[in-house]
């Protein structure tokens, strides 16, 4: 049986079930653990879904802020109360803001 999509918990996450631990050593199966794109490509929670389409997880009801805090924060939902975090690619000069 072709186990291309089978990933055992402790393997390096590379699709073909490489069993080396990715944290310390080069696992030798060809993927590059230090490359963001590579590791995110191989640990994709949405794998199997059509590409090219944006996916937003379904918001669940939760305990909401009290009225005063809701107006102050700009949302009554703590889960949506996110800091504005202008993203700047890592190693991109010394501009402030977050980093990818």
């Amino acid at each position: 049986m072709n186990n291309m999509n089978l990933r055992r918990p402790n393997d390096c996450g590379f699709r073909n079930g490489c069993t080396e631990n990715m944290n310390n050593r080069n696992c030798g199966c060809g993927h590059n653990a230090k490359c963001d794109a590579d590791s995110s490509m191989n640990n994709d929670a949405l794998s199997g879904l059509p590409v090219g389409i944006g996916y937003v997880p379904w918001q669940q009801w939760c305990k909401v802020y009290d009225l005063a805090k809701g107006l102050n924060q700009g949302t009554i939902f703590p889960i949506l109360d996110l800091p504005f975090y202008g993203c700047v690619p890592r190693n991109c000069g010394r501009c402030h803001g977050g980093a990818l």
Binding site: Q59, V64, L67, A68, L71, T75
Partner: peptide, 19 residues
């Protein structure tokens, strides 16, 4: 208070539109 409660309703309406 009216601003706060009105804002909360507006935010809640956005949630109810999808839930």
């Amino acid at each position: 208070y009216l601003s706060q409660v009105s804002f909360a309703i507006n935010d809640l309406v956005l949630f109810l539109d999808t839930h």
